[in-house]
Design a protein around this nucleic acid. Structure first.
Lengths: 197, 197
DNA sequence: GTCTATAAAGTGATAGAC
DNA sequence: GTCTATCACTTTATAGAC
């Protein structure tokens, strides 16, 4: 049973508790190896009762992704708004994305990356539209830095490399270890704008 | 039906053809959504006949990973051997890994990254031992560069960031596009040793 | 909103003939 | 080495009572 309150950016309603439990199980075992019986059991109901809240198992996966994209797009906006310089905005974006990926919404974010293809075509397209808003925030800042001459690499390529660097962190970063999230953000920032930390 | 000759670093035997077909299907649909009937059909036999060649479906997945790790560890060694300087070796490693991931062994490499947890614990541990040899080649070069003062970042952290950057390329890099693999390798190299390309 | 019961379909793997 | 046939099991989703 996962703790569900505010974890993964999901509210504490009956539906929210189902989504949090699902996010936890999907990350642990993957979508295909998680049964609706698993999800039901982890919130203390029977498998048939799931389908009062969601039309299908795939709908649960889509809802997890939708919630986490919305939550983290807002987080990115807030983080940038507090910064005056473009370079400061980039550092804020990196910190916010790391926080999303290894922090409070880690389960749902990992699910979004790893279980993407378990969505049918229609829902993949809908989720991609939501993601493109999130991506545009990155591209605006990187393009700005490129025009200022601070970023030498092509902004689109740089965003791809950044996605790789941050997206892989759940596989190695230890939140209890000596390296802080802010330290890691600075290391990654230096990889982007060419300074040595 | 996938072309199988030498693709994915696997030889053209009956067993090899099964492995290549499996790698192709596993990458496309994932391990769990690929049935033994799918694999059998794509080499033109019946599902029951699979189990003359492999003890279980999981054994097929492990064999795919084992083959691709062996093949690419050798590739890494060869690429390094042709270089005189440590920096040259690093560039060679990056090029070789990109070639593995988006080139001739792309399917099997992607499977290794994305279907890792579909292996049982025993086979995961065995595969991890094979991978650690591969990883040590990287760490030796990065540590060397660190001691020479060329690499400022911690070698272990840098390898994690590199793994992320190269591992994400299958999701965006277009082999038919304007950016060549060698260009991309140079861009990534510049991110590592702090030079601007 | 949750329960019980079950339908309907698909799965990995085995056995024995050829 | 491949075939046919099938077992034993699991899965999502539905129906109707409470």
């Amino acid at each position: 049973m996962a703790e569900s309150l505010a974890i993964n950016g999901i509210d504490d309603s009956p539906r929210g508790r189902l989504l949090s439990a699902a996010a936890h199980l999907f990350r642990d075992k993957g979508f295909d190896r998680t049964t609706v019986r698993d999800i039901a059991a982890s919130v203390g109901i029977q498998s048939g009762s799931i389908f009062h809240h969601f039309k299908s198992k795939e709908d649960i996966l889509y809802a997890v992704m939708e919630e986490v994209i919305h939550f983290n797009t807002a987080r990115l906006r807030d983080a940038m708004a507090a910064e005056a310089t473009t370079k400061g905005k980039l550092r804020a974006l990196i910190r916010a994305e790391l926080q999303s990926i290894v922090g409070d919404t880690a389960e749902a974010m990992t699910v979004m990356v790893t279980e993407w293809r378990c969505l049918g075509e229609d829902k993949q397209r809908k989720a991609l539209e939501l993601r493109s808003i999130y991506e545009q925030l990155w591209l605006d800042v990187l393009t700005d830095l490129h025009q200022q001459g601070i970023l030498k690499t092509d902004p689109f390529i740089m965003r791809r490399l950044l996605t790789g660097m941050t997206g892989w962190t759940p596989n190695w970063f230890d939140r209890e270890g000596p390296l802080s999230l802010d330290d890691l953000a600075d290391i990654i920032l230096a990889r982007v704008i060419g300074e040595q930390e």
